[in-house]
Amino acid sequence: METLLSILIGFMIIGALYALHAKDLLSALIAQGIVGYGLVICFLNLRAPDLAIVQIVVETITLVVMVAVVLNSSRKEVKESWNRNKILNIVTSVIIVGFLVYIFAFMIQPLQPFGDHSMRMAQYYTQMGAESTGAANLVTGVLFDFRGYDTLGEATILFTAALGVVTILRSKPKKESAS
């Protein structure tokens, strides 16, 4: 399982690098699709069918929206040019990345090796979840019962985002109401 996942993530990394370097924005979006749909296959292998369903639909809709945006404006990639601040930028980036790597190496210590979850908390969910919520799908049970607040917050964020998109994209000012 670990080898398979490593190969899949390797493909995703190649797709991501191509997406970031493509000259045409449309092909960049298609290459981003490689990453998104590769993630779907990873989820299926990680025994998470719920996540796979959500991700495949969400990825498709994101792709449609992004293609709509790109076709609406410009497909050309902007030209890279050398400027004076570049060395400073590179030094800053290297420091940030080094810091991140250090934190990652530090934080990965207490984790169990892959595929060997300790089940300290999960034991309760898998054994008692169905009894206390009555749902056969444990993910839904956790989502709407034990962690209802998360779901409520998520729905609020989606609502706010839709509101924000509608507000940002209103090009003409709304007519003033009769006063």
């Binding site: 990680l46 089940m119 999960a122 969910y125 444990l138 993910v139 962690r147 998360d150």
Partner: peptide, 9 residues
């Protein structure tokens, strides 16, 4: 079963 909690998050 695999842990449902990370999946829900």
């Amino acid at each position: 079963y695999v842990d449902p909690l990370p999946q829900a998050m």
